[in-house]
């Protein structure tokens, strides 16, 4: 051992003179420590990320189910309408007047008039290949169909109000009949199903989120627990709390980003794999899960990133704090 080589600068580092340089070097230092810790504990990091990925996946699967169910409910509701058939003797002006009146109602989304000739044409087109029906039509001679107004409400609950207008004496002068009564049951069913679906998915979301939250919190705590002695040693050689804590927080962000990227990749993989099966089921509702995620990509993934990062940072902040008491 060569004593004469122990040639340190004579200035003492004391805190007063080094606070400012702490600021200068700390950020890169913190980043370096975070990455070092990440790859020197690779398997532990991987395990933590896996837990995060699973939590994210379960939340995303829930989001998918919500999207699918609300889409089905919406499209079923969309199929509901009221067709009003006008009497043969009703004048074009009266019908037009009635259509305008319906359109002005705030509850009405659309009121589409279908003239009887037009209705006949499309009827003929639809049953082109059915000789029996075509024969029957010929026999009848004149157009057996009526002028029709198809009314769609904004909300299924609004049909009651529309129906009230239709049943007014004034309206009944030109209306032969309306097919609303047939729909009443369906609409009631759809409403109660959609209410139930909403309630269930709300509860499911709350439960799933809570479970995911607890699992992530615990995984982070285990991760930090393995560092408890190091944290104490760092304290003992004079590191400040923030200097010890910062790399763990940066690492928490790293985990969040990696987990989100992995979860997103897996999610898209799953959607593509499940696509054909889902499509055959959802086709009639004109809904594609992949499209849904594409359209809401930024919204969904930014909020997930924010949530995961926040959860991670808070968890490791709390967990590290426990060992900083030395």
């Amino acid at each position: 051992m060569a004593l004469q080589l122990y040639n340190l600068p004579t200035t003492h580092y004391n805190l007063q003179s080094t606070t400012y340089s702490f600021m200068n070097h700390s950020f890169l230092r913190v980043l370096k420590f975070a990455f070092q810790d990440f790859y020197r504990n690779f398997w532990l990091s991987l395990a933590t990320i896996t837990v995060l990925v699973l939590a994210l996946l379960s939340v995303n699967i829930l989001i998918s189910l919500n999207a699918i169910s609300s889409n089905i409910v919406a499209s079923v509701k969309d199929k509901v309408d009221v067709s009003v058939f006008f009497k043969k003797e009703a004048s074009a002006a009266a019908i037009n007047n009635f259509q305008e009146k319906m359109k002005l109602m705030p509850e009405v989304k659309a009121a589409i008039f279908i003239a009887k000739d037009q209705a006949l044409d499309s009827f003929k087109l639809k049953h082109e290949d059915d000789p029996a029906i075509m024969e029957a039509l010929k026999e009848v001679g004149a157009n057996p169909l009526l002028d029709t107004l198809v009314i769609k409400a904004r909300n299924t609950e609004d049909y009651a109000k529309i129906l009230a207008i239709l049943s007014l004496e004034e309206s009944q002068k030109i209306i032969k009949y309306q097919n609303y009564t047939d729909h009443q049951k369906i609409i009631d069913n759809v409403n109660s199903i959609s209410n139930r679906v909403e309630k269930v998915s709300l509860i499911l979301t709350a439960v799933f989120s809570l479970i995911a939250l607890l699992i992530v919190f615990n995984a982070v705590r285990v991760m930090i627990y393995t560092h408890r002695e190091e944290i104490a040693v760092m304290r003992l050689v004079g590191a400040s709390n923030s200097f010890i804590r910062a790399p763990f927080l940066v690492e928490a962000c790293l985990y969040s980003v990696f987990a989100l990227i992995l979860a997103t990749a897996i999610l898209y993989g799953l959607t593509i794999m499940a696509g054909p099966y889902l499509n055959s089921f959802l086709e009639t509702y004109n809904f594609s899960l992949a499209n849904y995620f594409n359209q809401n990509f930024v919204k969904i993934f930014l909020s997930e990133l924010a949530a995961v990062a926040l959860l991670n940072i808070v968890s490791s902040g709390i967990a590290v704090g426990k060992y900083l008491k030395v």
Partner: peptide
């Protein structure tokens, strides 16, 4: 402090262990 039980950081190399005391003080690289 030279600790009876050393108290080295297991995840850091010899160089990094020693450097850490300086880094904690904010010394330049």
């Amino acid at each position: 402090v030279i600790f009876q039980d050393y108290k080295l950081l297991p995840q850091k190399t010899v160089f990094e262990n020693i450097a850490f005391a300086l880094e904690a003080c904010g010394a330049s690289n």
